[in-house]
Structure formats: C-alpha cells, structure tokens
Amino acid sequence: MKFPVYFLLIISLLFASVPAETTDPTAAASQVEVSGIIIDPDVLMPYDTAVVTIILNNSGQEAVPINHAMVYDKDLDILTDNYEKVGSIGAGNTLKLEFTVQARDKTGIFYPVLSLDFRGAHFLRYPFRVQVQKDPIEMSVLSKPETFVEGKKDQVMIHIGNPRDNEVSGVTITANGPGHEITPVSYFVGALGSDAAADIPFNITPYGNQSVEFTLSYQNGINQHNVSYTLPIVLGESRKHANPVLSNVIVTNEAETVRVTGDVTNSGLETANGVEVTSAEPAAPIFPYKLYAVGALKPDDFSSFEITFKVDANVTEVPLRTSFKDRDGNIFTSDTLLEIPRTEKVVEQEQASPIPEKAVYLIPVALLLLVIIAIWLSRRNKA
C-alpha cells in the first residue's frame, strides 16, 4: 500500500527537476509604456525649475525588471540624478518616476528623452515636450487722474493680464509710496489663468511728489517672479474739481453792519458738497447771517446767499470765504476779496441844503429890511 505513495513522490521530483517554460524578457518589456507625463509648471520661464512626473504602466502578465532610468537633453539642465536601481514593475501595475529639470536662457519647445534600460531586454526611449516661454505677467495703469491734488484722495486702477499659455498662482500686488496714504497697501488676486485679466483699484491721497511703486509678484509653479511699475505723482490743480464762484455780489453798508448778498455757482465738473459762505478777518461775522450754508451744488448749479459782518471804518477790503467738501469729505476753501464802500451820510446832508449855513441867520434880517422899505415907499406915495 505504500508503493503508490513513493511512486508519486518520485514522479513529482522528476517533474520538479525539469525547468519550467519562461516568458521572453523582450516580449514582457514591450508591455511597459509611458501612460502619462505631468510637468509642473506646464510652461517654464527662462531659468525656471519644473518637476516632471513620468508614469509607467505594465499592461502585461509578467513583472518587468528595470535596471536604471534617466532623462537627458542638450538644451535643458537635468538636476535629478539617474535612477540606478529602479526595481521591477509588476504585472498590471504603474510606477512613477520624478525628475527635476531647469530651463536655460533659451525659449521655445524642447524634447528631452526618457531612457529606460530593462534587465535582459532592450531599452525604451521616450521623448516628451517641454515649453519655455519668456512672456511675464503684464501690469499697467488703466485709469488715473490727470493731475493729483495734494491731500485729495483719487483712485488709480491697475490692470494685470496673463499672456502666457499656462496659469500662474499666488498673484499679489503691493503699493509703496513714502509719505502718501494708500489703500489697500496690498491686494491678493490668487490664480490667474491663461489670457485672463483683473482690475485692482487703489486709493491714493498724495502728500508730496514722491512716486508710487507697484510690485506684482506671482508664482509659476515653484518659481517666484516679480514685475514692477512706477507711477509718477504730479501735483497740481484738478480740471474736474468743483469750483464755487461768487457773482452778483451787492454790498450794503448799514452803519456798523455790512450786509452782502449774491449768488454762488459751481463752475467745476464735480459736485460741491456742504457749500458755505462767510466773511474772514479783518471782518467779524455777526447775526443774523454769520455763515450761510448753501448745501450741495451740482456742476453748473447755483444758489443765493446772504451774510452780515462788522468791520472797522478804515478797512476797505474783506475776504469772503467759500468752503466745500468733495465726495471723500476733504474740505477746500477759497477767498474772494470784497471792496467795502465808504459811508456817504454826511455828504448827503451837506448836499441837501442849497443855502449856506451862515445864510440861514441872514434871512430874518433881509425880511425886516424888505418890510421897512415897503413902509417907507407907501408913506412916500401918500405924501
């Protein structure tokens, strides 16, 4: 009964000593292919660094051993060492290889080559596309005032655009102008896609002629880039500024009080808010119209006003002060010199009597003489 058992053992040893049929290594290696390549960033700038991820796929039924892997190119710098011992890629499995490449000063499209050497089989050579583009993110001023007014807030619109073939990230704009009030100081845009644009407003209140520098920073993959733009600040008078002008001014000197009436017209191109008219030194404003509040005046609009004040007898000119606020609450003032007429009361009394003051006392005497002459003439006629 034991003989069949020994017989089976002998048969199994005989079959075990016969070598099994093996798959051809070249045929197995032919089932390994590059299924994908990821380049970050998609498009490099000169001297940018990119991470290249190469995905290998084994669609065969056998594991394939790989001796080493490398990437080479005469126009790009390969910063990663070669894979000297890759190992095997199992049947139906994928394998990722990462390489770091750096662009030089040349731009264009380059084709570095992936080289895989299989153990006991042939090798694989696979060129892939790397693009190097010089175009940076562009920054310009979309709108700004023709002239900055010191102490007056104005808006500057910064326009940025991405002319590149790939998206950039971490886009930030920073404004720097010593002595000026700038809001916001920085603005975070974030990602900016290919052919995309954005407009960013900055409010600038200038104090002096110091220029404002805008710095645009962004990332192309892991690479940091900066672009600068200098905005000159030229101070002057605004052409669109509100401009209250006094007209039809009538001055009435009433003993110790001077009364002034007239119209105030906004000849500017912006609304003048909170318009007020009053008198300034050496005049002393008094009731009932120490200050006349006109209110808001739109362009080409007007309103009447009336003010009263006291002034010394020897004063011949008094400034009328007009003030208003712009849309941001900044206060602007201007003075208009007003001539004060002298009083003519004494002169009018002297001109009212055509008879000299001394002649008034001679009238009774003349009348008495006329009576005496009349009596004398009547007696003479009777005689």
Rank of each mutant, 00 (worst) to 15 (best):
K325A: 08
A175H: 03
P206S: 12
P178L: 08
S267L: 12
S303Y: 08
N248P: 02
G161H: 10
E146A: 12
L231P: 01
Y218E: 02
L370H: 07
L367P: 03
H122V: 09
N67Y: 03
N220C: 06
A121M: 06
D312L: 08
D77I: 07
P178G: 05
L8C: 13
S279L: 05
K144V: 04
V5A: 12
F287K: 14
A197F: 09
P244A: 08
R380K: 15
Y361A: 14
G151A: 10
S304Y: 06
T26E: 09
G60K: 02
S323Q: 12
D328A: 10
F118C: 09
E167R: 15
N266D: 07
I109M: 12
F99P: 01
G170H: 04
W376N: 11
E150T: 07
N166H: 07
T205S: 09
V101N: 00
I233Q: 04
H180N: 08
A366L: 15
V141Q: 08
V32N: 01
V171K: 04
G161Y: 12
V294D: 02
T308I: 03
Y207F: 14
S17Y: 08
P299Q: 08
E84L: 15
N314H: 10
S140W: 07
V86M: 08
T147C: 02
V251Y: 04
D135R: 13
D73H: 10
P145Q: 06
Y289Q: 09
D48Q: 06
R321K: 15
W376F: 12
T322P: 01
E281K: 15
E98P: 04
A313R: 13
E306W: 01
E62V: 14
A383S: 15
R342N: 09
L216Y: 04
A242K: 02
T53N: 13
P41F: 01
V251L: 04
T278V: 06
P319E: 01
V318L: 05
H68A: 08
A359Y: 13
T107P: 01
E276M: 14
S140N: 14
I182E: 01
L116S: 04
I160E: 00
K74S: 14
P25N: 06
T23G: 11
S140H: 12
S88M: 03
Y187S: 14
K2R: 15
P136W: 02
K2V: 12
V346T: 14
T100A: 07
V52K: 01
L235M: 10
Y83K: 13
S247T: 13
Q102K: 15
P41K: 05
I10K: 04
P145T: 05
V168I: 15
P354C: 06
T53C: 05
I286E: 00
G87V: 03
S267H: 12
D335M: 08
S353D: 10
L9I: 15
P356F: 02
T261Y: 03
R327P: 01
L76E: 01
L44N: 05
F188Y: 11
I158D: 00
E281M: 11
E317M: 11
